[in-house]
Design a protein around this nucleic acid. Structure first.
Lengths: 192, 192
DNA sequence: CGATTCTTTGAAAACAGTCAATCTGTGTGG
DNA sequence: CCACACAGATTGACTGTTTTCAAAGAATCG
């Protein structure tokens, strides 16, 4: 399982075998079945998690029991609740597996140590953070600007690999529209 | 003007006078009058900008000439278009001054050099990026979950110092609702 | 196969957007 | 100091979009 992670890293940065082994020694692989929690609301999150294969969702569950999906995390992506990790407070969010999933967990302290020790790794993480911010800004833009239909079109264009792996109502939740509206939106689109 | 920046930094990290001077030597102060552009769509953005005093807005202007405000940047905040800076492509966004504003500009290359040279500065920047991501996630959550009224209430609670300095229609733009809807929302709230 | 989950549809109600008009306060130039 | 222009806020009438609730049909997992 670590090999997937190693491959991901080596495609992005120049990592010696020693460094790679060093990272491996601080990594904890974990398998999740469908619907299994990686993080349950109320628990404190202490890791950086890399998804080797499968698909996770991070969501908030409101008083009415409704799920609001904030992010999907397919293979070759990072996930976790940064807020809980930084503050040390219990998480407001759940993360669970939509598909059978394999993740690599790295403890917060180990992760920081790895950043300090391996400079290319540090640069890579900084870069990833920046790119994440850009993507978030783009998402906010789409969100405040577009109609339901445009949001959906944008989603399938931007995440084709996710769009056809998750049920529609999860995409609706991610976009902040109701499943019924999304269903109608699509059937009208087809008619054109 | 640099003193504001220095004070901001020294409240957050332990910075020697030498380091502080070193940063100052790579900083470029700039004054902006109301409505003056810091960045105009089409130009390439190459800086990290710290706002010492005043208030800026970052926005997209659509085909109909409508402004969509993505972020406000009051004093003691950073701004800029990370996307243009990272890609080297012309920016889609404008940044201009809502009030008389003073900013410190640091060239991308200098900023990176400062990060590499001053390790506490590097840690600080990493930390700021992380906090930004948390804030963005929170905003997305509010956006996909709440009604117009809740979004407004959340805004004035979270940014009281901005809420009473900017015209309502800008808040509406930031929240992704029309100025009229926001106006009605408020008057109904008062009646309760 | 049976149970569960997912998708679609209908009808009513709530919500938000648009356009146009009016009102308010502010500041500038004569 | 006044008059006027201008930006901002509000209101009304109308339109369009989205939600909600309920129900039924389709697909899928175990």
């Amino acid at each position: 399982m670590f090999d997937d992670f190693k491959k991901y890293l080596q495609e992005r940065i120049a990592l010696s075998d020693d460094d790679s082994d060093f990272i491996a020694r601080h990594s904890q692989p974990k398998k999740l079945r469908r619907k299994q929690y990686l993080l349950q609301a109320g628990d404190v999150w202490k890791y950086d998690a890399f998804v080797c294969r499968g698909l996770l969702k991070l969501y908030f569950e409101d008083e009415k029991g409704q799920e609001h999906i904030l992010r999907f995390a397919p293979e070759n992506n990072w996930t976790g609740d940064r807020e809980s990790m930084e503050t040390g407070l219990p998480s407001k969010y759940n993360i669970d597996a939509i598909e059978e999933t394999e993740v690599i967990l790295i403890l917060k302290e180990d992760f920081e140590m790895l950043r300090k020790t391996i400079s290319v790794f540090n640069d890579f993480v900084s870069d990833t953070l920046k790119k994440n911010l850009i993507a978030h800004q783009e998402r906010i833009y789409v969100n405040i600007t577009n109609t339901a239909e445009e949001k959906y079109r944008n989603f399938i264009k931007q995440f084709p690999q996710i769009a056809n792996r998750v049920p529609l109502h999860m995409i609706a939740s991610y976009l902040g529209i109701s499943a019924e509206t999304l269903s109608r939106t699509r059937s009208q689109k087809g008619k054109k």
